[in-house]
Design a protein around this nucleic acid. Structure first.
Lengths: 121, 121
DNA sequence: CAAGTCTTCTACGGTTCGTAGAACACTTAT
DNA sequence: ATAAGTGTTCTACGAACCGTAGAAGACTTG
């Protein structure tokens, strides 16, 4: 999977946080935080096109202005990235051991719950 | 953390798989697989310098030729990458849920063992 | 010292990313 | 329908990163 640049990531974050689809203008406005001017609208559109090419964003061309939305949820995307990393190592168990050793207590609790799943306690 | 290019990753893999430190020549030889010529020695040295700058490789300058070794183990490196991904999302639990849902049975077993740890069954 | 080996310096071409103007397409109000 | 406004596409540039490696310098060894 391709890696995201800084602005690309910011835009994905906005799309992930939005409940429904956004327009390029919505994004440009959201990117203009505080006194900083933020990128030009065309810049946002260029990046959206690139994200569409990479398969991260889908675009509704029937609406005018076009509506953009994230193809995957952030959680799915991140989980896939983590999988990619894990899959690129031959010794999964060793990686997982280090990984688990470093996660916060909260995350350990989450993992435990998920693994226990349907099992009785 | 910076992301690795293709050759950079190949070299890291060789260093990770090696038990002790390697020379640039060792690496060039290892990279010349089969009939393919592989990169020039200077190419390997350039990449090693870049990896050193990124903090992935350490170099023993007292030896001649210099000895190169990975700063972290592959497992540590990968675990750190996974952490970085997880940390870049606000909702860890959601990411972990997707992640666990996609791992192989073997990996689930590994995780279970690690989480159970010292606990009685 | 000479020859060979290793390292550093420098540099180029490809790719990605942020950036955005210019031109074109589309919508809407008059 | 035509003009004004808004949105999209096309094109392009500079910075950064990566693979690539020659040329020149430093070091080792015979």
């Amino acid at each position: 999977m391709a890696t995201l640049g800084e602005l690309e990531r910011s835009i994905m974050d906005l799309l992930w946080d939005a409940d429904d689809a956004l327009t390029a203008n919505d994004l440009r406005d959201a990117l203009a935080g505080g006194g900083t001017p933020g990128p030009a609208l065309t810049t946002v559109l260029t990046v959206l096109s690139r994200l569409e090419n990479k398969g991260f964003v889908s675009r509704d061309r029937d609406n005018r202005p076009h509506l953009y939305r994230a193809v995957m949820s952030r959680a799915d995307h991140m989980a896939e990235l983590m999988h990619e990393v894990l899959g690129s190592a031959p010794d999964h168990a060793a990686v997982l051991a280090r990984f688990v050793g470093q996660v916060s207590n909260d995350d350990v609790a989450s993992l435990r719950r998920m693994l226990d799943g349907a099992q009785p306690r």
